[in-house]
């Protein structure tokens, strides 16, 4: 039995706005075992980013608890890495500067820092772009930097919030394949958010389907297809149909 890394117990989240209190997360109970690649799949604006932020510690829970590796999550911390929807790279730092940022904050000496950062830059396939600024990179390459930056602090869990959402279809397929390659090499617990069913079935060990806002868990699917997966394999297509049929329409 694998150890449970993320545990959400009865997690609720509401925001106070001018129009009153908005409940975004209904009540979520979720357990993610070590090295699982969990996909949160739900309609647009259902609260996926909010759930990720709560688990990452960027937002506080309104009710319930989140623990990561047994420790209660209350604020951001380097045991959790985040890859953002809109990359969120530091534009004034080079690829190297971005990737080594977390190690620098931790006070890792320069030589070791550079070596480790270089390892992850190589891992995501950006060798030769160390001194390039993000504004000079393509969308797919920026997401590679984002992945390397999150990996480089060697967190217990990685949260990825629709990292490929802004990419064109071609690049998106490529990046899904790349992520699988990276994850096979450097196994981590990953929570991956998407509203693209094909991406969900391609990547997931398990898919958790979320309802519309206030979001709760609607259904779960274990995906046991062998890897690398084939987008047109009959079983792939069947799962795709089955899951698409139950997901809520975007409001």
């Amino acid at each position: 039995m694998k150890k449970d890394i993320i545990v959400c117990r009865d997690v609720k989240k509401s925001f106070e706005t001018e129009r009153g209190i908005v409940d975004v997360i209904g009540s979520v109970n979720l357990t993610v075992p070590e090295n699982e690649l969990l996909v949160l799949f739900g309609p647009g604006q259902c609260g996926k980013t909010t759930l990720i932020n709560v688990m990452a510690g960027l937002e506080t829970v309104s009710f319930g608890v989140v623990t990561v590796d047994g420790k209660k999550v209350e604020k951001p911390g380097p045991d959790r890495g985040v890859v953002y929807q809109a990359t969120a790279l530091f534009p004034w730092l080079t690829v190297m500067g971005n990737v080594e940022y977390g190690l620098k904050a931790k006070g890792v000496p320069k030589k070791e820092r550079r070596e480790r950062a270089q390892y992850y830059i190589d891992l995501v396939g950006l060798t030769g772009f160390e001194n390039t600024f993000p504004s000079k990179l393509s969308g797919g390459m920026r997401q590679r930097v984002g992945i390397a930056r999150a990996y480089c602090i060697e967190p217990t869990v990685l949260f990825m919030d629709e990292p490929f959402g802004h990419l064109d279809a071609q690049t998106r397929y490529l990046m899904q394949e790349e992520l699988m390659r990276i994850w096979e090499k450097e196994k981590r617990t990953i929570v991956f958010v998407t509203n693209n069913i094909e991406e969900a079935v391609y990547l997931a060990n398990r898919i958790v389907v979320m309802t519309n806002c206030p979001t709760t868990i609607k259904a779960e699917f274990n995906i046991d297809l062998p890897r690398p997966r084939d987008y047109v394999d009959p079983e792939f297509l069947r799962l795709r149909e089955e899951i698409s049929a139950i997901v809520d329409k975007t409001l």
């Binding site: 951001p76 985040v82 969120a88 530091f90 940022y101 904050a105 602090i153």
Partner: peptide, 25 residues
């Protein structure tokens, strides 16, 4: 961008480091 500040926090940066390496640049 508050997302950048959040990203720096997630990477373990302290307030003073965020000020020097994010807010200032």
């Amino acid at each position: 961008d508050p997302v950048l500040i959040g990203a720096a926090r997630m990477l373990g940066a302290s307030d003073s480091r965020i000020f020097m390496t994010i807010v200032l640049p």
